[in-house]
C-alpha cells in the first residue's frame, strides 16, 4: 500500500533516522535537490549507511537520485542499489531511453552484487514537458517501472508558466500522466502541495488528485501525510461495497447462477478487481492503524 510518499533530505541524519515514524507509507530519501553539490558524496554515504544499519518498519524506502545529465547518478546507484531500497526515483526523466540507460546500469550493479535482476524497482519523476509527452513510453519502457510521479514545480518552469495553488497550469500534465500510467498498468503519484501551513489547501489538492485517478501523492512536509493517507484510503462506503461484492459472488455460486447482480448492477471483472484492491488496502490499514478514521 502506497498512498503517501514523504521527502526527507538525504544529508540530514535527524530526519532520516526517524523517517519510519512519520506515518508515511513511503519515504523518499533525497540525494537530488535537497543536497548541495558539495555534499553529494556525504549524503550518498549517509543514506547508504542508514539503509545498511537501520530498520524501517511499515515504511517503503525510495531513494531519489540525481539525473543522468549530472556526474552523480552512477555513483548514487553504485552506493544505493546494493542496499536494496524498494524503489529508485530517477529525476528529470524525459524519454524511455533515459530509463533504459538507468535500467541497464542497475542490472550491472545487481549482477555484480549477486542480486536477482530487477530487485530494485523504479518510479520515474516526470518533470519536463518532454517527459509528460513521453509518459506512456516511459511507463512501458522496462519492467522495473512500477509507478510514475509528476513533479509540478520543475514542470511549470519548463512550461514557462507560474505554479499556482489551484494548479490549472498542470491539469493537462496530471490527466496525461494518469492516462499513461493506467494504460501501462502502473501506479501514478501527484506532485507535492508546497504550502506547509495551508491545512485546507492540502486537502483540496489531495481530493482533486484522487478525483483525477492518482494512486497517491508526495509530500514535502510530515504535516501533510495524515491528510494524504486519509484522502487516498477507501471510504467506509467503498469498503462496505467491496465486501458486498464478494458476498454476492459467494451467494451466486451457491445458487449456481452465472451472472451476478448487486443493487441492480451487473458485477463485472473490473468491479471485482476494484473490490479486491479496496479490501486488501482496508486490511492493511486495519493492521497498521486499527481501522479507517
Amino acid at each position: 500500500m502506497r498512498r503517501s510518499m514523504l521527502f526527507l533530505p538525504g544529508n540530514n541524519p535527524n530526519m532520516i533516522i526517524n523517517g519510519d515514524v512519520l506515518g508515511s507509507d513511503s519515504v523518499i530519501l533525497d540525494l537530488e535537490d535537497a543536497v548541495s553539490p558539495a555534499e553529494k558524496d556525504a549524503a550518498r554515504i549517509l543514506v547508504r549507511n542508514t539503509l545498511k544499519y537501520l530498520k524501517f518498519e511499515n515504511c517503503e524506502i525510495i531513494v531519489r537520485i540525481n539525473s543522468i545529465d549530472t556526474e552523480y547518478w552512477k555513483d548514487d546507484l553504485d552506493e544505493i542499489v546494493p542496499l536494496k531500497p524498494d524503489l529508485i526515483m530517477p529525476t528529470k526523466v524525459s524519454c524511455a531511453d533515459d530509463i533504459r540507460t538507468i535500467d541497464a546500469y542497475m542490472s550491472e550493479i545487481e549482477k555484480k552484487h549477486g542480486m536477482e535482476n530487477n530487485t530494485v524497482h523504479l518510479i520515474p519523476l516526470i518533470e519536463t514537458a518532454m517527459g509528460v509527452e513521453n509518459a506512456f513510453e516511459i511507463a512501458k519502457s522496462t519492467d522495473r517501472v512500477v509507478a510514475m510521479f509528476l513533479g509540478g514545480e520543475d514542470l511549470t518552469a519548463d512550461l514557462h508558466c507560474k505554479r499556482t495553488k489551484v494548479g490549472n497550469e498542470i491539469s493537462y500534465a496530471r490527466s496525461r500522466m494518469v492516462s499513461a500510467a493506467r494504460a501501462a498498468g502502473i501506479d501514478v503519484y501527484d506532485t507535492p502541495f508546497t504550502d506547509v501551513n495551508d491545512d485546507e489547501g492540502i486537502r483540496v489538492d489531495c481530493e482533486l488528485a484522487k478525483s483525477l485517478g492518482f494512486t497517491g501523492k508526495a509530500s514535502i512536509s510530515p504535516r501533510h501525510v495524515s491528510v494524504i493517507n486519509e484522502v487516498f484510503s477507501p471510504s467506509h462506503k467503498d469498503v462496505d461495497y467491496a465486501y458486498e461484492v464478494f458476498e454476492a459472488i459467494k451467494t451466486a455460486k451457491e445458487l449456481g447462477k452465472g451472472a451476478i447482480a448487486l443493487h441492480g448492477k451487473m458485477i463485472d471483472k473490473p468491479i471485482v478487481e476494484r473490490a479486491r484492491q479496496v479490501i486488501s488496502m482496508y486490511e492493511e490499514i486495519v493492521r497498521r492503524n486499527g481501522g479507517l478514521d
Binding site: M15, N18, P222, S226
Partner: peptide, 9 residues
Amino acid sequence: DPVGLAMAQ
C-alpha cells in the same frame, strides 16, 4: 518536531 507530533497523535 515531526517525531514529537507523531507521538502526540
